[in-house]
Simulated assay, not measured.
Amino acid sequence: MSVAKNVLRKLLYGVGMFGLIHRLRNRHTLTVFMFHRVLPKQSAEYQAAEKEFTFTVEGFGQCLDFIQRHYGIVSQADVTAHLNGQQRLPQCAGLITFDDGWRDTLVHALPELKKRALPAVLFLATEVVDLQANDWWQDVLVELIAQEGGLSRMESAIEALRASALDPDKKSVLVGRHQPAEDYAFRLRRVTATLAAMDESQRQAILQPLVSRSPGARQMLNRADLDLLRPWITIAGHGHSHAPLSHHPRARDDLATCRAQLQAIDGEDTVMSFPHGAYDQATLQQAQAAGYQVCYSSDPTLVNTTRSRSTPTPGQTLLGRIHIPENEWTCDENGIAAEKLATFVFFRTIEQ
């Protein structure tokens, strides 16, 4: 059955049926593509990277070719102007975005964008450009959590620090042990938010005894790198510490610090995406109060470009994004399969 399905899918794409459906169905939509990392397949960095969020350079180029073939690519400035009623977007509009601030966005993704003259947006967790450690603490955390019992070990380490904390302000940002009714995702977000609220030395004191890594090159962008991204990549916000803001004990401060940093580097200080896709109504209100007018979620929906923008709150817009992986959903044995990628993105729900 799966073989017949794949043959049919390839045939429908090959004769242009999928493309025709896309041009009709999605003509008044904006598809916001979400990427994270781009690395050479044979590199040690790729072998160690979290594959769900990592593209090979070759696969990324194939994906860009597909996107350029089927979408009218726009910049964040175009999107902002559209939302302000100043211009229309092209039919089947597309916006390319990256999250976090990985240095491979500059080293490997940017050259592929330049080859095709494609603009993009980087949602930068502004803290990363000033971190001293070469390994990003959240990547270290991912490695730890992947180990058996890793999350429980992390919670125990935080609880030990909490018990020894003498400063009430520091103690207040540290979570205790989880309750039996809490699910795994909630626990992970809470631990991540707790670490994010610490300073770098506190995080390292917790993580280093739990995860052993050989010294490597810097993973994240630094301040000097940011100018090299321009003019192709616009820099917007992704929180300061990359905490899941709905769980952050000081989310308002994190949002304000991120915006101040964006202003200092001449970024788009009224545009952000929510780290980990974590938000709730309170987070939206905090983001608006901090001055963010355009917020992107990780909700996998296509943006309806005919919709009047009066929600979630006056003066603020929330837009969905589609996470694109390089895996069995989008690939065959030869790499990115256009017919698979088409079915992955063309038929997503269009917001009402």
Rank of each mutant, 00 (worst) to 15 (best):
V3H: 12
N6F: 13
L8F: 14
R9C: 14
R9Q: 14
K10E: 11
M17K: 09
F18G: 07
I21T: 11
H22I: 05
R23H: 06
R23D: 06
N26G: 11
R27G: 09
V32E: 01
V32P: 00
F35P: 08
H36K: 05
P40V: 11
P40Y: 10
S43W: 02
Y46D: 06
A48Q: 07
F53I: 15
T54F: 07
F55C: 14
R69P: 08
Y71A: 05
D78M: 07
H82T: 10
L83K: 02
R88L: 07
Q91H: 06
G94C: 02
L95Q: 00
I96G: 04
F98S: 06
D100S: 03
G101L: 04
G101H: 01
R103V: 01
D104K: 03
V107Y: 05
A109C: 11
L110R: 11
P111I: 01
P119I: 07
V121K: 03
V121F: 03
T126M: 02
V128F: 02
Q132A: 15
D139P: 11
D139A: 10
I145L: 11
L151M: 03
S152K: 15
E155C: 11
E155L: 06
E159G: 08
L161P: 03
K171V: 12
V173F: 14
L174K: 09
L174Q: 11
L174T: 08
R177H: 15
Q179T: 15
D183A: 07
Y184L: 14
R190I: 02
V191K: 00
A193G: 14
L195W: 01
M198I: 08
E200F: 01
E200I: 06
R213K: 08
R213V: 06
L221W: 03
R230L: 13
W232D: 10
G239V: 08
H240N: 10
H242E: 04
L245E: 02
H247T: 10
H248T: 00
L255K: 06
A256I: 13
A260M: 15
G267C: 11
V271H: 12
Y279E: 12
D280A: 11
L284S: 08
L284Q: 03
Q293E: 13
Y296G: 05
L302A: 10
N304C: 13
N304H: 09
R309D: 11
P312N: 08
L318Y: 05
L319H: 08
L319M: 10
L319E: 04
G320W: 10
R321N: 08
P325M: 10
P325Y: 06
E326H: 06
C331M: 01
N334Y: 06
A337M: 00
A337F: 00
K340A: 04
T343Y: 07
T343N: 03
F344L: 04
T349Y: 14
E351I: 02
